[in-house]
Nucleic acid binder design. Structure first.
Lengths: 115, 115
DNA sequence: CTGAATCCAATAGGATACTG
DNA sequence: CAGTATCCTATTGGATTCAG
């Protein structure tokens, strides 16, 4: 049988911790859905605060998964677009998303227990 | 283009937060490598404390990803084995592990920035 | 060997208000 | 519109000690 061990490395934990932060999955989803402007992300992610959205976008930018571009109009526009790496991550996340859906049903009724 | 949105649900975030906790990825790796006894996990996961290993195993048990079995010998033995769901998770995690490896190189030199 | 208990430090997250 | 600044609380994680 194929083991996860064959394909992992010390940074795997780091990746999990990055995308495991609250809202990060939703931010990636929003990006995959085409969100580009700050307000678009905010509209797609129900319940997130400005502060955390800003923080998550900053983290994903630092990780090279999205790219922040400031367009000098008045007022300035800011775009957050997926990088190729970010796109690849989305693809790599699909099996996990399917696994989640299979476990909890398409409507995701319950939450995975955390303790 | 295929979007992650097509395959996700509210519990996806919950899944990410579960496996995004520190050490959880390593615990799953250890399980995939065949660890069953508490001490085997501890030996495979360098640096983890008893408290956190115990906590992670409890969480994964509660999530139905591993099963805890107490064997009444003296002293008692305790086994933590992957459930079918746990196995499926490992498989679903493989693309992500490969993605991590591609980003940082097989030796995982650097850590993904977190802020 | 397999944990539970305790204590402490660091971090994360929520709410709110404010700004160019 | 796109954030930043502050404050506060809750959660996490680390270290150590104790126990069946």
């Amino acid at each position: 049988m194929k083991s996860i061990h064959d394909d992992t490395c010390p940074s795997f934990e780091g990746t999990l911790e990055l995308i495991g932060r609250r809202w990060t999955g939703s931010v990636l989803q929003a990006a995959a859905q085409g969100a580009r402007r700050f307000g678009e992300y905010r509209a797609l992610i129900e319940g997130i605060s400005d502060r955390l959205l800003s923080q998550r976008l900053k983290e994903l930018d630092a990780a090279g998964l999205i790219e922040r571009t400031v367009i000098p109009t008045t007022p300035v526009q800011t775009r957050y677009a997926l990088t190729p790496d970010g796109h690849a991550l989305i693809q790599a996340l699909l099996p996990l998303a399917r696994w989640s859906m299979r476990r909890t049903g398409p409507r995701g009724a319950r939450r995975v227990p955390s303790a």
